[in-house]
């Protein structure tokens, strides 16, 4: 009798996971980074403490900030969380997953970016405008590459619906696919750029000439800043989950395979286990890349993203040529 509520429960669990686990992932990445550099960490849970503290702080608004500035954090948070309800993070049975396919999902992130960039320009400072301008430059170059990368996966799976992609990839026979490898490399580069990680942007800097995302949210404080930060953490979490869903989907619940087999709720614990494992590894990979690379000059970024585009295109070509 309770079976009919399973989809709603799964959806709720998934949204809660996105909300609550995103700061943990960021905490994990920060802690790893500290260890790799021989510093002592603030603990895995510091991001939670940051967010909670910000929520209780007063807001200081710039004199000429308009309603766009005040509304942007909510819209950014809403669009990001909506994306979190769509990506199959733990199960493909989430009912909202059909709301948007992978192209529409990219557009959801684009809404968040659009409003962040507007908010950056609202206070009328040089930094805010600089951040917006750069963010939109990075985004406009990343988007074609992202589309080509996703396109390659959708060639293999003959669908753009993420749940269908997950289903085809994880239940089909195991095939070595160079196209997917290329697409993954390209996706990884774009994800680094989109989530503002090191070679493109530095999430932990306030040096004026190096920041992109931070420059846009410079004027925020209190709960607005908390929402912006939280949305940023969710974005990292969601790009990692999206990479997992598109390229390493084994273990996501609800497919009826030998892993996490049964439909309904029974597969969820295993799905959580695999998700945690994969995200932990993703964090290691992020730290590995961030420690190994230096932040690049802003005008090297087009070349970096151009590489991502070429990789994705090579993936598509090798699908036609070799598979």
């Amino acid at each position: 009798m309770t079976g009919q509520f399973y989809p709603a429960i799964i959806e709720g669990v998934q949204v809660a996971t996105v909300l609550l686990a995103a700061p943990l992932l960021v905490g994990w990445v920060r802690a790893l980074k500290c260890w790799s550099q021989g510093r002592s960490t603030a603990g895995l849970f510091q991001p939670y403490r940051d967010i909670l503290r910000l929520f209780s702080k007063d807001i200081v608004l710039a004199e000429n900030a308009s309603w766009v500035f005040r509304a942007a954090p909510y819209v950014v948070f809403g669009a990001t969380l909506m994306a979190g309800a769509i990506i199959p993070v733990i199960s493909v049975k989430a009912p909202l997953a059909a709301t948007a396919d992978v192209i529409a999902l990219v557009a959801l992130f684009a809404i968040a970016r659009f409003f962040t960039a507007l908010a950056g320009m609202d206070a009328g400072t040089a930094f805010g405008g600089m951040g917006s301008s750069r963010e939109m430059m990075v985004a406009s170059l990343a988007e074609p590459a992202l589309l080509m990368s996703v396109f390659t996966v959708s060639l293999v799976t003959r669908s753009t619906s993420i749940t269908e992609m997950v289903r085809v990839l994880s239940t089909g026979p195991f095939v070595l696919r160079p196209s997917l490898a290329f697409a993954f490399l390209s996706f990884a580069i774009i994800a680094m750029a989109e989530t503002g990680r090191v070679p493109v942007d530095n999430p932990s800097t306030h040096l004026e000439l190096t920041m992109i995302h931070e420059a846009m949210i410079l004027e925020y404080s209190g709960r607005h800043l908390a929402l912006m930060e939280w949305a940023g953490m969710m974005k990292l979490f969601l790009f990692s989950s999206l990479a997992i869903a598109l390229f390493f989907p084994w273990g996501i619940a609800g497919m009826g395979g030998w892993l996490a087999g049964t439909a309904g709720l029974a597969g969820l614990p295993a799905a959580f286990f695999f998700l945690a494992l994969k995200l932990a590894l993703a964090g290691v990979a992020i730290v590995f890349v961030e420690t190994g690379l230096a932040k690049m000059r802003i005008f090297r970024v087009p070349e970096f993203l151009g590489t991502a585009f070429i990789l994705a295109t090579l993936g598509m070509l090798s699908y036609f040529m070799l598979e």
């Binding site: 070595l176 490898a181 090579l314 090798s318 070799l322």
Partner: peptide, 13 residues
């Protein structure tokens, strides 16, 4: 054949 495909892709890369 799959392996040679992957290797071909790597050579192209």
């Amino acid at each position: 054949a799959q392996i040679t495909g992957v290797l071909a892709a790597l050579i192209l890369l």
